[in-house]
Computed example of a mutant assay.
Amino acid sequence: MIKALSLTLPLAVLAACAPANDARYLITADPGEKVANLRSRTIEVRLISLPSYAAASDIVAEGGGGALFALGGAQWADDPARGMAAALARGLAERTGASAAIEPWPLNTGPDARLDVRVDQAYARADGVFELTGQFAVSSPEGTVREFVKRFDIRTPVSGQGPSATADALAKALAELARQIALAM
């Protein structure tokens, strides 16, 4: 009994010293309305290119003076580049009816279209707005769809404080990005 207690007590002390907020937040895209059917029946979404602060696992927001700070030890539940690409693929599939998957392409026959997204900015600003800016390019390995590059500048409200509000704002921004891409295709 004393031996068991002597082992349990140090574990309890270590648990008490652990960070209070080691929560992980999913990267999702809010559902959206269906758009007209595309000529592309299959879309490969490449891993999203992110700036280093957005590619890190910490969830960041702008603080005083414009500096970016990690939000209380909160982290993304997935690698941000992969998580955003997967959320975008789901959003495109829901909106267009096309089969969308992240790279590497899982089928023997190549995709009709390949989507490459490069993000310039992705963070919760101090003024309560989430900013997602960059460009997306649609290429066609088989020449079945028109190829193009287009810029995006999306701003969504951050409703509340902390990492869950930032995650919700990112979900809205990714949903809007999926809508813009679907309309452009």
Rank of each mutant, 00 (worst) to 15 (best):
A81P: 01
M84I: 04
M84T: 01
G91D: 12
G97H: 03
W105A: 10
R95H: 10
R82K: 08
A98T: 12
L92I: 05
R90F: 15
L92A: 10
A87C: 12
W76T: 07
G83C: 03
W105V: 06
A98E: 03
L68W: 05
N108C: 04
A70W: 13
I102L: 03
D79S: 05
N108D: 07
N108S: 04
P80M: 05
G110Q: 04
L71H: 09
G91L: 09
L107H: 14
W76C: 09
W105S: 06
F69L: 06
G97K: 08
P104Q: 06
L71R: 14
A74V: 14
D78N: 14
A101R: 05
A93I: 12
A74R: 12
A85L: 00
A85D: 00
G97T: 03
L92C: 09
R95K: 07
G110Y: 03
R90K: 13
N108A: 09
A70H: 10
A93V: 11
P80K: 08
E94V: 10
E94T: 08
R90Q: 14
A86L: 05
A87M: 05
D79V: 02
T96P: 05
F69W: 06
A70P: 07
L92E: 09
P104D: 05
L88H: 00
P106F: 00
G97W: 10
A100N: 08
G97F: 13
R82Q: 00
A70K: 10
P80S: 09
W105M: 06
A93T: 11
A93Y: 11
P106G: 00
A77N: 11
F69P: 07
A81M: 02
R82Y: 01
A98R: 10
L68C: 06
A89E: 04
D78E: 15
Q75D: 13
G110E: 13
A93H: 04
A89F: 10
Q75F: 15
E103M: 08
E94D: 13
A89T: 04
R95N: 14
